[in-house]
Design a protein around this nucleic acid. Structure first.
Lengths: 218, 218
DNA sequence: TTCATTTTGTTGTTTTTCCAACAAACACAG
DNA sequence: CTGTGTTTGTTGGAAAAACAACAAAATGAA
């Protein structure tokens, strides 16, 4: 079954044997729910209760705050956790989630993970995986914010490329974006970015063809 | 002793009784180190090994990638965790840390937390606290990135204010910034922001005096 | 209170980015 | 190969933001 495959391969369950899933399903009070297209699964401003794990379908993550000026955040793919809260009924959700098609979500409680009924250590393993997932997301957010903090398009590009160079430990590398994708990621105009890339080329900062970049010290 | 106070009150040790600290110090292989002013504690591109907890002093967090174009990220205050890694010797640090004054750092290992020697559950408690801290940072980064993603100064302001309104559950609230601080946070010019705030006022979007804001639906 | 300092708002100029339109290069199915 | 659709680079005018300089207001210490 396809749904089970996604669950089985989720990083969050890494290191936990399948025969223990039943134990987890019971102790975390799991509940599988189906939603039709365009259904608002969670509305911003409401109290966070249970954690969601997207099994099938797609979720649109967005804000629509005070002045009804909707802001798109991202589209969640199967295998993603969302709506985490560690102080149930104290935290409120700052974002909304809406289904983009027929969607299946596994809801569960986090609290049992923090209680003392974990003879085999699988709760702790689950928490560790959670921690790791969150750490990764953190790194990505931190990097993205660093680029967006740069004042000009040129500096945004340089910030992105030099981090990518460090990450890939090379001064020559591929990037996972086409031009439009990179512009969206850096929140600038594609044409302005293209202009700036040309300048950088003629200034001797880099050589590029398609999504392959080679950095130079001019 | 002041250093111990900071440790004792750190959110990361919440719920763990003082008499258990010795146990943690031993099992996590803790090590206290002193650094002089301007010392580079960790350089970007090097492998992450141990986790740091800033006890005393201040750390400048910055990047200086390929083209030696330094980028300031933040200044860490006592009580902050940094240089976390969950795959020792696989992850590299994407940022550097430099002391701004005489600084004391507690270094420790994370791995023991994920092993099976936790009779009283304090390792798990520590992990939970870690998870919570990381979740909070995540929320803040996500919010910040959302604001920075907005194309214009006006939209950055509106994004920030409407989120703040949601967070504080009121259409009237104080913000923790002065004008310059808000401009820095939103990565825009103070004067341009001031201009835009004036426009928003005359357009009937808000009333403000000092750091108190009241939102209106025009 | 007065005076010095900091914060905030305003204005005009310069610079940068956005936007729209188009041409060249490329990708690919028939 | 040809033709179609997409991606990329380029350009010029419009809009916005940055910058600099200054005035008004608020703050805080003597």
């Amino acid at each position: 079954m396809k749904q089970f495959e996604i669950l089985k391969n989720a990083p969050i369950l890494d290191g936990i044997p399948e025969e223990e899933f039943d134990f987890l399903i019971t102790s975390l009070n799991c509940q599988l729910k189906n939603y039709p297209k365009d259904y608002i699964v969670l509305k911003e401003g409401t109290h966070l209760k249970r954690t969601g794990f997207l099994i099938q379908g797609a979720l649109r993550q967005y804000c629509n705050h005070y002045w009804d000026n909707p802001i798109e955040l991202s589209t969640l793919q199967p295998g993603t956790l969302f709506a985490l809260s560690f102080q149930v009924d104290k935290e409120i959700s700052l974002v909304s989630y809406q289904t983009l098609c027929h969607t299946v979500i596994l809801w569960f409680d986090l609290e049992p993970l923090f209680e003392f009924k974990d003879e085999k250590g699988y709760h702790r393993r689950l928490i560790s995986n959670l921690l790791q997932a969150m750490n990764e997301q953190n790194q990505q957010l931190l990097a993205h914010r660093t680029h967006l903090s740069q004042p000009t398009t040129r500096e945004k590009i340089l910030s992105y490329l030099s981090l990518e160079s460090l990450r890939q430990q090379a001064d020559e590398f591929d990037i996972p974006f086409d031009r439009q994708g990179l512009a969206d990621y850096l929140c600038v105009e594609r044409s302005a970015m293209s202009k700036e890339l040309s300048k950088l080329k003629s200034d001797g900062y880099l050589i590029t063809s398609k999504n392959h970049f080679k950095l130079l010290k001019p």
